[in-house]
Amino acid sequence: MSLAYARNDWYVIADRNSLEQGPRRTRLLGDEIHVSGSYAHPVIKDASGRMLPTQIKFDHVWTTVGDRPRPLFDIPEGNEPGRRLVPCGMVRVKCSPLRAVENFLDIAHFPFVHTDVLGAEPYTEVEPYKVEIREQNDEVWATKVKFFQPLAAKSAAGGITTDYEYRVPAPTTAVLYKTCPPKPEAQDVITIFVQPRSETECDVWPWMALYDDDTPYADLVQFQQMIFLQDRSILENQRPIKLPLDPRMEIPTRSDLTSVAYRRWLKKRGAFYGALAETL
């Protein structure tokens, strides 16, 4: 049941750089997938040799194994002129794909895991913010999130209070809008596209759409990789490995409102792949 739901979503399976390295094998929802071809003409096949549909969006190659796939969401900011689009490659994490998304939605851990970058002691308080499930497009949104950050982005010159908004358009994608240091009226967009290899292992493809014409590409990618790899060791040690949906199994606090909404939303749509659906 959970797998049937997950099969009808689209997932990132490759980017330009990975295709240039030649054919490779990967996994999606527990099954082997063969990836070859070029970025313009990617060839994605399942283990039986069946060609899978592809589409290129947000600088990545997407595929689905479902018979009735839901349409792939849009991130309209990606088309705005003047933004720099920054695919960041892939990082493998031995954790539930849902835990990877949930971690991305959390700010309370910033001072402790991203010390002196995205947060710092003693500025650990998460002020009240707003969370809703937007019915018209069935997405989780967290808005009016504020946090003090010593080095919010590669383009930041010093500590600033950063405004955040989070959006979950699909169970394995999280989009973050945050204050753009050199252009305060605009928002930088940072996303993670999570490729579920299995319920307990995933490949995470970060992607950014930034207003930053000055920072060299290598610095932008490394900033993102630094942040994400600080999370990786924490993610691999979370227990239970699958994300529990029963609120009594992991007691949330007020700062976890986004996570609470995300788990409820997963439960409501039956998106249980990578989740612990049993109750206490």
Partner: peptide
Amino acid sequence: VAIDFYPGYE
């Protein structure tokens, strides 16, 4: 000097 070892193989 940041070198894009991955994903750019710089």
